[in-house]
Amino acid sequence: MANLEIKQKVDASGLSCPLPILRATQAMKTIAAGELIEVTATDPGSVKDFAAWSAATGNTLVEQDSSNGKFRFVLRHK
């Protein structure tokens, strides 16, 4: 799934809860339905938080991975 077209990237590295979620929400407002954003975060809590946020909002968590303490989320606007 390397060729997903990311509409906007959000760097939430170093930001504490709840900022990764808030920054992602703000970015979501700038894109259209079906488009994707990519969020990078270092907050370990963001893994569960993005799952909860996706379940609550109906936006889809398309892809998720982590390496060297960095977490990456690809989210699709509902």
Binding site: P18, I21, L22, A24, T25, A52, W53, A56, T57, G58
Partner: peptide, 9 residues
């Protein structure tokens, strides 16, 4: 409050 807003509550 801000997170609840982000979660569309």
């Amino acid at each position: 409050a801000s997170t609840a807003g982000a979660m569309e509550m």
